[in-house]
């Protein structure tokens, strides 16, 4: 695995299984995720949470002001505005990350995961690991094949959410970007079977993302506990700890 990683130090502090703190030349610290990667991960994570919260409200507005003749604070419009603003943050994060994955030099370790993806032996070993049958396979990239599949599915959902979201958007704002996107988005709308279904699809995709989040967090915590390479820390600090062989 180390071949694709930047070695930042040869001798590192090491906490071994028995809990002894010491220096161990067999453990190395590798840059796993670039700064841009980590920033967009957290921006995206927070935007998704906010989009889900505002999305549920848009679907069925549960909080409503009492029926009075007092001036109002335009609650629903506010929810929608925030949903759309954060929606564009989400779009930017997804586009940035897609760019990094395809082109960025520092992200070769991500692209290397493709090789594991098409290797049936790594697949079998990975499934075996989660079924507690065998050891974790050695990987060429930063993602194992199951993880890569899950992320692929996530991006499929993310892009579908973006397309359906933009279709809904062009009907809310008719000028500017809305006007620019209007005709192409309407063609997609017709292909999908009308605005009502677009809205439904947007809603169903949200549930797909919620399921993804649950599994994603579980596996991350699982790896942090059992593999002990600093998996969760890596998405904050950027580095992971790997055994040197």
């Amino acid at each position: 695995m180390s071949s694709t990683h930047t070695k930042s130090a040869t001798i590192e502090q090491h906490i071994d299984i028995e809990g002894h703190v010491g220096i161990d030349e067999h453990i190395g610290r590798d840059l796993e995720y670039s700064a841009a990667y980590r920033w967009q991960h957290w921006i995206r994570a927070f935007s998704i949470v906010a989009l889900i919260a505002t999305g549920f409200y848009i679907a069925v507005p549960v909080i409503t002001p009492a029926a009075t003749n007092e001036p109002t604070n335009f609650l629903y419009a506010l929810f929608r505005t925030w949903h759309i603003i954060i929606g564009f943050v989400f779009i930017s994060a997804i586009l940035l990350k897609s760019y990094l994955f395809i082109f960025a030099k520092k992200h070769v370790n991500e692209r290397a995961a493709l090789k594991d993806m098409i290797n049936p032996i790594v697949w079998a070993k990975q499934i075996g690991f989660y079924l507690l049958i065998n050891k974790h396979p050695k990987l060429k990239g930063v993602y194992n094949p199951m993880q890569f599949m899950a992320y692929l599915l996530f991006y499929l959902m993310a892009f579908s959410l973006i397309i359906t979201g933009l279709i809904l958007y062009v009907h809310v704002y008719h000028e500017g970007l809305g006007a620019f996107l209007y005709e192409p988005m309407r063609s997609v709308e017709v292909m999908l079977g009308g605005l009502a279904f677009v809205r439904e699809l947007h809603h169903m995709l949200m549930w797909g993302v919620i399921l993804f989040i649950l599994i994603h967090i579980y596996i991350a915590v699982y790896n942090a506990i059992f593999i002990r390479e600093g998996t969760i820390d890596a998405i904050i600090s950027g580095v992971k700890w790997h055994k040197r062989v």
Binding site: T64, A67, T72, Y76
Partner: peptide
């Protein structure tokens, strides 16, 4: 709609 003022049930306030 934008104010978030919705009929909850036909015949209500």
């Amino acid at each position: 709609f934008d104010a978030g003022e919705f009929v909850q049930q036909f015949g209500d306030e």
